Amino acid sequence: MPSLKVKSRYILLNVLFLVGGLALSWGFASHFFEILTMDYNAEDLVGTKEEIRRNFISQISTWEIFVDSSMFYLINFIPALFILTTLGLFSEKRSLYVFGRNRYKSLKKAIYKDVIQYVLLSTSIVVGSFLIFYSIGAIFVYRSIENIGGFASMLPKDFYSNHPYLFFIFMTCTIYLALAFVFSLLSCALILLTDREYKVILLVVVIYFVYGRIGSYTGSVWFDIFASFTAFNTLYTTVEVFLPLILLFIISLCLLVVGVNKTVRNMEY
């Protein structure tokens, strides 16, 4: 079983980087930090400092700006923040599989079991981090538009208009959960195929970028992984947003089988 100490270390790291990254991206992309530090003595500003600041903050305190700004800088490498928990599998690979391989009746089954645990744990951490972030945002943001886009297509009419917070909870517990699961599975497969953490992170980002670029150049919904991460602002329907994950899931499974077989074979020597 994966070490609790190893898991807890990567869990904390993952939550801090993901929630912190979302918060920082929102702070800069929404100009919140600029509002806090700007010169309120400029001649073209009318009113007291507190009135002007309150008006500016009110303008950016919408669900749409909150969510869009939180992903603005992260969208180029967001999968890297989805897989940090899975890096703990390296500890199992470098220790238990090497020094304790004789303790397993079937090393292959043990590896698959560990992979499943890390994938589920990583997925839970990602979903939990977004739930925390959006729940904090719900305290001070409000809805400013009636229709959020295609991802709400399977929801009742005016659902977003009446329940914006629940819409983002729905988004987190569906498409973001699926994204976290697939990329965590891909990460575990690459961990078994490589020897360094930075290589896994780099490969995941490269695969994500190339996959997304294929979608951009071809216009195919089957490869538009970027739209899956920006489900809050897409013309695709609820079902279409999930389509780019199908081929990526198959690729991840194939790489996992190769990685497990390679690890078992290396342990036999």
Rank of each mutant, 00 (worst) to 15 (best):
T37W: 02
D39P: 11
Y40G: 12
A42S: 09
E43L: 09
E43H: 03
E43F: 10
D44M: 14
D44T: 12
D44L: 13
G47C: 05
K49A: 10
K49M: 11
E50N: 13
E50K: 04
E51R: 00
E51Q: 03
E51G: 00
I52S: 05
S58M: 11
I60D: 00
I60M: 02
I60P: 00
I65N: 09
F66L: 09
M71V: 12
M71Q: 06
F72Q: 12
Y73T: 14
L74A: 02
L74G: 06
L74M: 05
L74S: 10
I75E: 01
I75D: 03
N76C: 04
A80D: 01
L81M: 13
L81P: 15
F82T: 04
L84C: 06
T86D: 02
G88A: 06
L89R: 04
F90E: 00
E92N: 06
E92Q: 07
R94I: 11
L96G: 02
L96Y: 11
L96C: 08
L96K: 12
Y97M: 08
R101S: 09
R101K: 07
N102V: 14
R103T: 15
K105R: 12
S106L: 10
K108A: 15
K108Y: 12
I111F: 03
I111Q: 00
Y112V: 15
K113I: 09
D114W: 07
V115N: 01
V115T: 15
V115L: 14
I116A: 11
Y118A: 11
Y118G: 14
L120F: 15
S124F: 14
V127C: 06
V127S: 00
G128L: 10
S129K: 03
F130I: 15
F130D: 07
F130S: 04
I132M: 05
F133S: 05
Y134D: 09
S135V: 13
A138Q: 08
I139A: 07
V141N: 08
I145D: 03
N147G: 07
N147P: 05
I148C: 08
G150D: 12
G150V: 14
F151R: 03
F151N: 06
K157C: 12
K157S: 15
